[in-house]
């Protein structure tokens, strides 16, 4: 199961500890709902995510609507190349802020 981590600079942090795929979305939904999100911002550590499908993507978008605030920003950190590529295929890059490792540091 995913575990909470200390919040980053721009919102409450969450470690996604498994692939963002259809087999995991129900469990991840449960964990995301019980996480204490700060207003207008969220940061997800995706270093353990090797694969994303549209069910996982939908979960992230649903999170974006779940977080209170007008201009919600969801930051994805430590995304591997495959995830970045797939987010591009899905046409969704603009929906998230991709944070490079250097920038994150």
């Amino acid at each position: 199961m995913s575990t909470d981590t200390p919040a980053g600079d721009t919102g409450s942090g969450f470690v996604v500890d498994r692939d963002l795929t259809i087999g995991n979305v129900t469990a991840l939904q449960e964990a995301l709902m019980h996480h204490a999100w700060q207003e207008s911002g969220a940061q997800l550590d995706c270093s353990a995510v090797e694969e994303i499908d549209s069910a996982g993507l939908q979960l992230l978008l649903s999170l974006k609507k779940h977080i209170p605030g007008d201009e919600v920003t969801v930051r994805l950190t430590h995304c591997c190349d495959d995830i970045r590529r797939d987010l591009g295929i899905y046409g969704v890059r603009d929906h998230f802020v991709m944070v490079d490792d250097d920038e994150q540091a």
Partner: peptide, 30 residues
């Protein structure tokens, strides 16, 4: 995307909030 220059735009109109989401049902379109 392999057929030419593709501009892909995800449409999220139907995506509900986390509480309302049925994660195994697709509400996205492109």
């Amino acid at each position: 995307a392999e057929l030419g220059e593709a501009q892909v735009n995800l449409r999220t109109d139907g995506v509900p909030t986390l509480q309302e989401l049925h994660p195994e049902q697709c509400s996205l379109y492109w």
